[in-house]
Design a protein around this nucleic acid. Structure first.
Length: 109
DNA sequence: CGAATGACAATCT
DNA sequence: TAGATTGCCATTC
């Protein structure tokens, strides 16, 4: 795992790092920023190799459902809800993030 | 180089 | 609606 030079990972880290608090970005959104609208899987893989030194708010990166991966991620899906709640993100009764309100957008009103 | 994997997304049944 | 399948990308073996 010495290929941390991978521009792709760096790009993902950069984008994830610029996600404003209280907002969430989807893998597809990030992959689109990278220039590959279908690289959602690669983005997820980048997160998988995301070092904590980057302090990457992986919990702000969710799938299009507004929910993180189905299982244990950087510490636990419940952790994500905790962190996101602290960030100011609201959750729906179904346990998903209110994408309509917290989906990261460039042109914020 | 080829095959396999994966924290997704979209489609089909 | 929920579950299973396929497609795309990049990384790893």
């Amino acid at each position: 795992m010495k290929k941390e030079d991978s521009n792709f990972f760096e790009k993902v880290y950069e984008i994830v790092a610029i996600i404003p608090e209280g907002k969430v970005a989807t893998y597809g959104q990030i992959s689109l920023m990278l220039g590959n609208p279908y690289a959602s899987r690669a983005v997820g893989y980048a997160m998988h190799g995301a070092p904590p030194e980057r302090n990457l708010p992986c919990h702000r990166v969710v799938n299009k459902e507004g929910r993180l991966a189905p299982g244990n991620i950087f510490g636990g899906e419940n952790i994500q809800r905790e962190e996101l709640e602290k960030e100011g993100i609201t959750f729906l009764e179904n346990g998903c993030i209110d994408m309509e309100k917290h989906l990261w957008r460039f042109h914020t009103p």
